[in-house]
Design a protein around this nucleic acid. Structure first.
Lengths: 335, 335
DNA sequence: CTGAAAGCGCTAACAG
DNA sequence: CTGTTAGCGCTTTCAG
């Protein structure tokens, strides 16, 4: 059991150095001048005692905890560790640490997580969820804690938003397929047009329309956001009278499932069926053939989010900002 | 900028409910009886004000922060998010949150991270590193903060240790290969016998010795812990006079590289060359053929670590404990 | 069953 | 350049 009694306090340093606690504090924080000689005695005392300032006490006094909260569905989903790393790489050097909470996408857990962040006096919150009800963020906003939302569409009033260009990415994917000579391009989507998938479908349709190819209604199939879902989507598509010659999936796991189904059915990729994914998770480069996909730059999103947060913590006022991170085509063998 | 003035304090709740702060505190923490009627008034006041107790202040007073520190090389390495999730799933319900710090395996950053954890008054530390010098943990131990080390071999005095059964896993892998009829089994190892690789080589040798197959010296090749390393390892092995018919790799990424090289060389897997990995990262089930591997149960390690930590925080005394988490053979198509 | 007062470790006035 | 004092928000003696 940790006994704080064992840890030296600022007062002990002061005593050993023969000065007041105030002076030690200032020597440490540089908020007012301390003579070189005194400073030296203080540093010696600190080294001798192994003193480390208590950030909790400092935070209580200062009204800031140097902590930010990251609320995400699941750190185990490969998108989020990269995002978290981006956040940390910006915030860490500024002295902040992060508390990460997984909500599994459950609304009650999201609310509980936000409550906890308030209780913990975090200086900012980054919040990545599908079902964002403005009400759920109310307590955090009322507590005057800056919030940045990650992903999602319509910006909530007073809440900054960072997301990738899902629509543009899907559009680029379709343009690339058309440019490569494919004509009948299908889209394998999630159950409904949930989350980012909505923008991705929009981009898909827009690109087809612009190319004058139109989108046959049955060229968009709905399954779920999983490997099995992607396989299922392909099965459905190749049972149709006019088979697609290319398929864009709402995410990479689905695209990997599409590759499974193609292999299963003896279709050559990309000759018989081109396959594209979205996100560029690590696995995209591991499968065979390598998956051509649209990179969803998690790290950049995290970094942009962190910068926004720092800005707001430093008192930046003004209306809610929206930052769109560009996506990028990653060519491999599958299309 | 967050202004704490906006957040209701316990005193305001007390005032609104017409009681003292002491009573509010007790109503919240249940440390002494509060009449039903008073409690109700307090709860109403809390709801009306949207009061949330300040965990930082509580922590300062109580000498514990309800926070634990997780020091790892890189959250982006797919092993750690799963481990972190295991930790959180045990610690979360107990009221703890985690601060995760990435060290990139750099010793100075490791030391800095530990220092920071002391400053932040964490109630426990989980520490995953290769280069563990006992001295680096000294400050944490002196601060009476329970530490659990993740992975690594010789236990440090006073430091609990959780790791998977690397030697047993490698042994099981080799036994499985022998049982499947393979005779010339190679091992692709990291640069030196670093980290867990050392135990894995040991298990490999032990299993061969027990089977009376001996280990030809040139059947262990050293490369690096990467996909390219694994490919390179296979290249080296097949240039030898007597080729191996099976290869066990120190981790899955190397094994995936081995699959690359086999495909490149036109070797059928597993007919011409069986390939096994170690860890069972997600990618193992995504490649073709699916990778037969030894599951390194990150989640279980995290959970065991968390339980150990809780125990020590609750004051459990006694000598350093060592918990070994069993590994498990996962059969797919590559062997 | 309830309150008053002290104090966790630190820093920001306010003095000198 | 340095010290004294008060107080961040909470819990915990001690008192009733």
């Amino acid at each position: 059991m940790a006994f704080r009694g064992d840890r030296p306090r600022i007062g002990q340093v002061a005593e050993l150095a023969g000065v007041s606690a105030t002076t030690v504090s200032h020597a440490l924080n540089g908020r007012r001048p301390v003579s070189a000689e005194t400073r030296q005695r203080i540093m010696d005392a600190i080294a001798e005692l192994g003193y480390r300032p208590n950030v909790v006490a400092r935070g209580l006094r200062a009204g800031r905890s140097l902590t930010i909260g990251l609320v995400i569905p699941d750190i185990t989903n490969p998108f989020y560790p990269v995002l978290a790393r981006g956040v940390q790489d910006v915030l860490g050097p500024a002295g902040y640490d992060e508390i990460i909470t997984n909500t599994n996408g459950v609304r009650d857990l999201e609310r509980a997580a936000l409550d906890k962040m308030i209780s913990r006096q975090v200086d900012g919150v980054a919040f990545a969820v599908f079902h964002t009800h403005a009400d759920d963020l109310r307590p955090v906003i009322d507590a005057r804690i800056p919030v940045v939302r990650l992903g999602g569409r319509q910006s909530l009033p007073g809440v900054d938003l960072v997301h990738s260009d899902d629509e543009g990415g899907a559009r680029a994917a379709v343009e690339y397929l058309i440019h490569s000579g494919y004509q009948r391009i299908a889209f394998i989507c999630g159950p409904a047009a949930e989350g980012p998938a909505a923008e991705r479908v929009a981009g898909y349709r827009a690109a087809l329309a612009e190319a004058g190819l139109g989108a046959a209604r049955n060229m968009v199939v709905h399954t779920d956001f999983s490997r099995a879902g992607g396989a299922h989507g392909v099965e459905k598509l190749i049972r149709q009278r006019k088979r697609p010659d290319a398929v864009l999936c709402a995410n990479d796991m689905m695209a990997i499932g599409a590759l499974d189904a193609a292999r299963e059915r003896g279709l050559r990729v990309p000759e018989d069926l081109a396959v594209m994914g979205f996100d560029d998770i690590d696995a995209a480069s591991l499968v065979t053939p390598g998956l051509t996909t649209i990179a969803n730059p998690a790290r950049e999103i995290g970094m942009a989010c962190a910068r926004l947060l720092l800005d707001r913590i430093d008192g930046a006022e003004g209306p809610a900002r929206e930052i769109v991170i560009p996506t990028r085509l990653v060519r491999r063998q599958s299309a």
